[in-house]
């Protein structure tokens, strides 16, 4: 496992959701750098890029993505020794049992369904930030 910095990798194809997520992060004073990519392929490329000084602290992953799906991105993250311990939170609209089960089977750390109401969404992002960026102790450097 490479050393991690405090970047959040946001994998989201919907510009509205992207903006709302960044808005919610900022209004909850989560000052981490945010790297946003539009699809699964781009996400894997970013993670694979060897010139990166380190991996992100957290991946916020949408499931329904163009090119490579969120589930496939998760599987590939878990299958590489470089990224297999990376905290990945799925942030999606779906609460279908099959999606939830598939994500847990593929080793997701947390599964969050985006609420429609922005107040709830903002609260959700706040809790996420507090838990994964402050409380949670990430994987050790290798």
């Amino acid at each position: 496992m490479s050393r991690m910095n405090n970047t959040i990798l946001l994998v989201e194809d919907n510009p509205d959701d992207t903006e709302l997520t960044i808005m919610a992060l900022s209004e909850n004073r989560i000052g981490n750098e945010i790297k946003h990519v539009w699809d699964g392929e781009e996400a894997l490329q970013y993670l694979d890029d060897c010139s990166l000084p380190s991996l992100p602290q957290l991946v916020l992953l949408d499931l329904k993505l163009p090119k490579i799906s969120g589930l496939e991105v998760l599987k590939q993250i878990r299958s590489s020794p470089r990224t297999n311990r990376l905290p990945v939170v799925v942030l999606t609209s779906s609460d279908e049992d099959q999606d939830i089960a598939a994500c847990y089977d593929s080793g997701v750390n947390s599964y969050i369904r985006k609420p429609v109401d922005f107040d709830q969404f903002s609260e959700c992002v706040k809790q996420l930030g507090l838990y994964w960026l402050v409380l949670n102790i990430g994987p050790p450097e290798m």
Partner: peptide
């Protein structure tokens, strides 16, 4: 579940 909720989030947000 997926597609219709996204625009609603945008309207609300």
């Amino acid at each position: 579940s997926h597609d219709l909720r996204a625009p609603l989030r945008a309207v609300n947000g």
